[in-house]
Design a protein around this nucleic acid. Structure first.
Lengths: 234, 234
DNA sequence: ACCTGAACACCGTTCAAGT
DNA sequence: ACCTGAACACCGTTCAAGT
């Protein structure tokens, strides 16, 4: 992985941007656990301590990595209607996150938002306000959206529950159905609407994300039109 | 923190349950970062390797800690109406999680559900089915609920954004308002409905959680009554 | 057979010694 | 003044030596 470097050949000097991009590439290629200060330094052909001139510590490195990903989210498109505009923006964030599978975990783990993160959130809040939402309703609506503004949801059954081998999958499914009949039933129902096979290989995450997003946006729309306030409906 | 032990005094022999309870207590008292195999062993007055007879490795320890917390969730109460029954159960899960602030982070981090976790999820699925929901709709509804079945949401602004000192808070608020006017506005609106002060000390998390939960449950109810299916409405 | 201390291969970060 | 190797205080886990 680490690029060889002939003696005497000078590397372009490090800067914060190169450090962050290398960290993102390393996480993309080898997973987030591969992003240690020592490992990243080796990847860049420098001594670990050299990184500390460009990021104060590992937390700042992770914040910077998040900022790189947030930078990949499309800016708001024109259009006066708040619902399709917000929907499109959030699905753009989702595409950025799907390109970097480690990013949602890192976003969740950050205790404080960076300036870049605040910019993104501020602009989403602004889109609700431009759509005529009261500050009060917008506040609650942002909380209800939660991590979905980033285009991800906390999955209850991460990874595919069943192995690829169909025979082994059938056995495990019978086990599952015996102990957890209700879960087995809804796993089956999901597979049925995909390709008709009895044992599902997993869920259509994009469908599930849009289902929940639209349910929320429709709910917001209804409350907005009813003139909802936190003191009681008008 | 570690209990002193006189020479020759025999401790009750370790077992899996005592290990898990000690880990939960350690996380409650000193935070989840204090739960290392070495630190936990010291707390129990044993050598680190002694733990490995009761849990295979650290991942299994964390799974076991989650199981302890899931065990604190009230069993389903009687009653034929699915909505209040599910609402009550999820709010019970929330109370368990609030008693152990580290638990939501650990739940999020587990790559596979344990048997105890599957039991809880299976019973929630069963409550929707008992309420007359189709397997198809129940599937999507469980995804839409996401981590909210555990009684938590990923917070966008974790911690209180402003310091306790009112003068310092006012200065920081002016900074915030300059760069992020929309965010400043909804922070203000939240405070206003609490106690009328201009600068909010934070949000009412319980209100926000119930707002989003009810919005979702109401949405589920509406789809259910419309006979919604993933192939298109009936 | 059972238990456990030392060791291994890592961390993030500090700091003093070297150029 | 700048850079960096060694060191510090940790990890989870393996393994062989000791009882």
């Amino acid at each position: 992985m680490a690029q060889l470097q002939a003696d005497g050949v000078r590397r372009a000097p490090l800067n914060r941007d190169r450090v962050l991009r290398a960290a993102v590439a390393l996480a993309d290629d080898n997973g987030i656990d591969a992003v240690s200060m020592r490992n990243l330094a080796q990847e860049l052909g420098v001594v670990p301590m050299a990184l500390y001139k460009h990021v104060a510590n590992k937390d700042e490195l992770l914040d910077g990595m998040v900022d790189v990903i947030v930078g990949e989210i499309d800016p708001p498109a024109g259009g006066s209607d708040w619902k399709p505009a917000i929907r499109r923006r959030i699905l753009s964030a989702r595409r950025a996150l799907l390109r970097h599978p480690w990013a949602s975990r890192v976003i969740e783990s950050r205790p404080r938002p960076t300036l870049v993160v605040l910019d993104y959130l501020n602009s989403i809040v602004g889109m609700f306000r431009a759509g005529g939402f009261s500050a009060d309703l917008t506040h609650h609506v942002m909380h209800a959206l939660g991590s979905r503004v980033w285009g991800f949801t906390q999955e209850l059954f991460p990874g595919s529950p069943l192995p690829a081998d169909p025979e082994l999958a059938a056995t495990m499914f019978r086990d599952l159905a015996g102990r957890y009949p209700h879960i087995a039933e809804i796993v089956t129902s999901a597979a049925a609407h995909d390709d008709g096979s009895v044992v599902g290989g997993g869920c259509d995450d994009q469908f599930e994300f849009e289902f929940a997003l639209d349910l929320l946006l429709d709910g917001f729309d209804r409350l907005h039109r009813q003139g909802w306030t936190s003191r009681g409906q008008a």
